[in-house]
Amino acid sequence: MILAELTHLKKLSDVFLQILERNLSTTALTWLQQKIALVVAEEKSVQLHLCFSHLPRIASKGKIDLLDEEAFRISELMPGFMINDWTLDKLSRIWMLMQLPSDHKENYVKKINSLFATAEMNEQIALYAALPLYHYPEEWITRCEEGIRSNIGTVLEAIMYHNPYPAKFLSQPAWNQLVLKAFFTEKDVHLIVGLNERVNEALKATLGDYIKERLAANRTVAPEIYQLTQQTKP
């Protein structure tokens, strides 16, 4: 099972580079390309960690300037995936991850997992937003489930919003947890990729109980919950 053909991932990487070339200063772009050469060449993960941590000092944390045709091309290559509100350091980080050699599965997975292990808040956001772009997609299912347990709202959003990975790869119980967590943490569920497509009887039943619980507590119920369960508001 795959989200995108390898050739599509390569094309996405090219679009990202095009955006970076327009958004990054020449110095920053040169710095990034030099670092990536080191990251690609090393057996260990020292340069990878240094480059990943250092990037916000080189690239700006401002929002990227994205052309309409670029946004369209991205949605063609990976339906549901959107980078419109990404910052420049986030895009730079993720583009760098896409250049990691993936021939040796064990080493590739180990390197990315080591980044997760010591990630600060914004690094976590970038690492989770990149879930659909990693090779060996089945390897990240547990990681994605772990991320949904996070209490950091922005990390949850990185997994939930405009990210096609969860709908494609999560088991039904894990997917249902994601949706429930989104409602519990008052997320904008319209931004969840696959929300309507993956609705199922178990989820409907749980959401039905949730509606009763909210009403019993005199709390409001989000209108989207009624839509998903196909119940009418009492």
Partner: peptide, 10 residues
């Protein structure tokens, strides 16, 4: 250390 740059920051 991870909590200082992650959860506590949030």
């Amino acid at each position: 250390y991870s909590s200082l740059i992650g959860w506590e920051r949030f």
